[in-house]
């Protein structure tokens, strides 16, 4: 692959991802409305799709306010960290056999590393805001993400064990006969729960919990800095959906009447919709319940899944 091709792939992936993240503003509001028997935004443009433009313009032109009591530089860095770390994770996602920025041989570990860096945006954003609610949100976010990161990694290791490789390209190719969702259903469920907690989406949106903590760690943010958190959250949803599809649902594999990238996007989109459906249907657990399920139920389950997978793999290999 030439350098130019590589640059084009990077730019293309970036373009598509940012557009998806922006488009999700509309998709989420519209789908939430559908599930609540409402109509949702339907005024600007056909079916209200220009709400994306309106929202983005609004964010751009809002006053970019840094509170005088905030720690200025950390306050500025925090929202950039979340977008940066999530975008970095997309480096290893194979959209098709050709379109992949870099098929690292530590693939999944790189994804885990980047998602673990995402904690900093919450912690630093909350701390730099110098606000009680933000700090509470930051502390909740930090402990939640550390707790759920642990078994997020472990739940993926079953798939790695069956494939024998960390490379996502290899993992997809290993699913030619059967998707890993059949062999690793528990791994899928655990990974998805951890993914919701990592992106702090709605059943687990305890760091922001608007009914308790104003807006949690980003209470003090406005304008495009808030927009970065916003985009980061949507990118996070897309990332978790994409990784789920790659790991458990055969990535770009599918019947030949559609091109591989279309299969990938269809599957990813289905999971994004599932994220929104969860938001529409499930209530938020209490903070201690969240931590308790994380450490006392889900982590042992992930370990058990790993052990059983290993034992079965050993038995089959003889």
């Amino acid at each position: 692959m030439t350098v130019m091709q590589h640059v084009w792939i990077v730019l293309g992936v970036l373009f598509v991802l940012l557009n998806i993240a922006a488009g999700l503003i509309w998709v989420e509001r519209r789908m939430l409305a559908m599930w609540q028997d409402r109509l949702g935004p339907n005024r600007a443009g056909p079916l209200g799709i220009l709400i994306v433009l309106a929202d983005t313009l609004k964010l751009f032109f809002k006053e970019d306010w840094i509170p005088p009591f905030a720690d200025k530089w950390v306050f500025i860095v925090a929202p950039a960290v979340v977008v940066g770390s999530v975008l970095m994770s997309f480096v290893i996602i194979p959209f098709t056999p050709q379109i992949i920025v870099s098929d690292l041989n530590v693939g999944i570990l790189f994804f885990l590393a980047m998602s673990s860096l995402g904690v900093y945006s919450i912690v630093l954003g909350g701390w730099a805001s110098n606000n009680k609610y933000s700090l509470l949100g930051a502390m909740r976010g930090a402990s939640q993400m550390i707790a759920y990161e642990v078994f997020m990694g472990l739940s993926l290791m079953g798939v790695v064990m069956l494939t024998g490789s960390f490379k996502l390209g290899d993992i997809v190719n290993a699913q030619k006969d059967m998707w890993f969702v059949v062999k690793q259903p528990l791994g899928l469920i655990l990974f998805f729960i951890a993914g919701i907690a990592e992106t702090h989406r709605l059943p687990f949106d305890i760091p922001e919990a608007e009914s308790e903590l104003v807006a949690g760690y980003h209470s003090e943010y406005s304008g495009m800095k808030f927009g970065m958190f916003f985009i980061g959250e949507y990118l996070g949803i897309t990332l978790i959906s994409a990784v789920t599809v790659t790991m458990f649902f055969g990535g770009w594999l599918g019947w030949s009447f559609l091109p591989p990238w279309a299969w990938f996007f269809l599957k990813t989109f289905a999971f994004i919709l599932f994220f929104i459906l969860l938001r529409a249907s499930l209530p938020r657990p209490r903070y201690d319940q969240l931590m308790e399920t994380g450490w006392k139920i889900l982590l042992p389950l992930a370990l058990a899944n790993l052990m059983i997978t290993g034992a079965v793999a050993l038995l089959i290999r003889g």
Binding site: V106, L109, L112, A113, W127, A142, G153
Partner: peptide
């Protein structure tokens, strides 16, 4: 990657 996951991602977060 282990350096990032463990040190940068977990231990320093606990410090902070």
């Amino acid at each position: 990657t282990l350096e990032i996951i463990l040190y940068a991602g977990a231990i320093i977060v606990l410090f902070i």
